[in-house]
Amino acid sequence: MSADDRLRELANRVRKHKGVGEFDRFVPGTRLREDLGFDSLDLAEFTVRIEQRCGVDVFAAGVVHTWGEVVARVEQHDRSTARGA
């Protein structure tokens, strides 16, 4: 499963947890707060879900704002893990 697909699943789990419907218009420019509707607690939950599933803290290297930035950090982690394997 691609990083993008895994992250979509996790983002929608956070949205489901907060009682809002599924989001299906993910593009690199999708904004986590304004478009996905994530507040700071949702972002914290999204971060730990990513860490559990993908093994990387996407906020550790600085704040991310858009979907494209999150996907890029997970893909970068996937590549470095594959190189180290």
Binding site: A44, E45, T47, V48, E51, Q52
Partner: peptide, 8 residues
């Protein structure tokens, strides 16, 4: 807390 968030 991070753990608790992960598992709701």
């Amino acid at each position: 807390i991070r753990n608790m968030l992960c598992h709701e």
